[in-house]
């Protein structure tokens, strides 16, 4: 290992991207799942997550999540990202569950 350089595990990188996207989508980081692929030496990131309503439109939130991964992803992980895709899976439960 080179001195002064931190290598993150794939799992940690995935979690970071997932958390970035989840924040923009208004959902818990644990609800997102991330797939990494190689694209000519750089990373192609696909994040799949639900979305919560109430922060602009679903498409705006998804686009924001994508931008967030593209801009903050490399800064936080040191990985070069060639491409990011966001797949919005379903609607996140917004109303708190009623206790019965």
């Amino acid at each position: 290992m080179t001195a002064g350089r931190v290598t993150l595990s794939t799992r940690a990188i995935e979690r970071t991207f997932g958390a970035l996207a989840a924040e923009e989508l208004g959902v818990p980081a644990s609800s997102s799942s991330v797939d990494l692929h190689d694209e000519r030496g750089s990373l192609a990131v696909s994040v799949s997550a639900p979305v919560a309503l109430g922060r602009g439109t679903v498409l705006e939130a998804a686009q924001a999540a994508r931008q967030r991964v593209l801009t903050d992803g490399p800064a936080l992980t040191g990985a070069a990202i060639a491409n990011a895709r966001i797949r919005v899976r379903s609607l996140h439960d917004v109303e708190p569950r009623r206790v019965r």
Binding site: P50, V51, V58, L59, A62, Q63, R66, N83, A84, R85, I86, R87, V88, R89, S90, L91
Partner: peptide, 17 residues
Amino acid sequence: ALDQEGVSVDAGLLEGL
């Protein structure tokens, strides 16, 4: 349901809405 500019939306989301 939709796939454009790096963003795709499942039919399940719209079904939920």
